[in-house]
Design a protein around this nucleic acid. Structure first.
Lengths: 211, 211
DNA sequence: CCCGAGAGTGAAACACGTTCCTACGTGAGT
DNA sequence: ACTCACGTAGGAACGTGTTTCACTCTCGGG
């Protein structure tokens, strides 16, 4: 794979991919079909199975069109990840997180999410790989994912759906927890940790950080 | 890029790559030339510049030979990373780490290493990318890198070149620090953090963990 | 000295991400 | 209804990681 070019193509206007909500109805529909196809293929066969020709075919768009919407495979996968992740966050906003302490609540949300990911190992492998391989040109999508995760953890920390102010220190703690979670996920995806290890390593991190 | 096959090829015996020290003198020499070429190309042009044909040519071996030594580009780069990393660890064993507190000593070694990496951004990009993209078949090389890093941090924590026993909790803390460092490096490599952010985020993590 | 096996060579072929080009269709403005 | 711009279809072509294959070289045992 070659790295994604750092600058966007300037041969035409902003690509539809940069604005998930813009464009005509037909364009939003195409975008949805493409992301659906991506998720399906990734869930079946992981990163390698998400082949651009296969995605295009399954989504019933031309290869050129796929590239107009998403400038690279990495963009495509990270966008898919962002969409799924954001969905989850929206769902989690509905009700307060169970648990009596910040520790319990954080573990609850992270474990729930971890288990959801582990139920679809191939999909997770594809998404984590893409996330890891992303370069500067994917900053936007990555930031979206990061923000989602931060929001979820902040909510869990405070135990309320609408997290108010987050202190400097809390933000730092959340970042570290995110880092540990990501590292653990990588280790799991690459077969260097099992599911139990992932939960345990996050538990230890949260315990050490929240004391 | 396609993922590395999960199982090793069983058409012949163990490849020379698995045993950096084994083989004939000529084989060790070839291996060295290959890794040198890899480092040179990576330092000049990053991940994309490490092209298997180019490595083979610069190392003066045939492409098939290169693949006999390293079954994929990822193995090649991670092996190169492991070699460089191990070198550093050996150097750091020579003398005690300066600093009055564990915090200071840990920051000293990590910052020193961080700055060394930042002096060769292309090389670091190539190595970190490979590390992130590695799958199960590279477990051995990755473990080598992880062990090196753990050793260095453990030494710094205790302030002595020969770190004695490491408690359960210390090991957990070291793992978390490694995770944060890796995350920060990824963010730096992908342009989402600058050099200062990297040091700061590690500093915060060490402070929160060692209190 | 000769042999056979394993290692190395060199080149072709294949797979998949990415780019590019040409023709087609469709919808907004006239 | 006409037309022009633009997005899309369809597919060829290119680059690079990876595989394969037929050949050659080297070297240790007879």
């Amino acid at each position: 794979m070659t790295s994604v070019s750092t600058e966007p193509r300037d041969t035409d206007g902003p690509s539809p991919a940069t604005a998930p909500t813009g464009g005509s109805a037909a364009q939003r529909e195409r975008r949805r079909r493409i992301l659906d196809a991506t998720i399906t293929l990734a869930a079946e066969g992981g990163f390698d199975a998400v082949q651009m020709r296969a995605v295009a075919e399954k989504a019933e768009v031309a290869l050129g069109t796929l590239y107009r919407y998403f400038p690279s495979k990495i963009h495509l996968l990270v966008s898919a990840l962002a969409r799924e992740f954001t969905k989850d966050v929206d769902r989690s906003a509905i009700r307060a997180t169970p648990g009596d302490t910040a520790h319990e609540r954080i573990m609850y949300v992270l474990n729930r999410r971890t288990r959801a990911l582990q139920k679809q190992p191939k999909l997770t492998e594809a998404l984590v790989r893409a996330f890891m391989f992303a370069d500067q040109s994917v900053t936007g999508e990555i930031h979206e994912v990061g923000t989602s995760l931060t929001t979820v953890i902040a909510r869990a920390m405070h135990g309320t759906p609408d997290h108010g102010e987050v202190t400097e220190e809390e933000a730092a703690i959340i970042r570290i927890i995110s880092d540990v979670w990501l590292s653990a996920l990588i280790s799991w995806v690459t077969g260097r940790m099992d599911a139990e290890d992932v939960e345990k390593s996050i538990d230890v991190a949260v315990r050490l950080l929240l004391r």
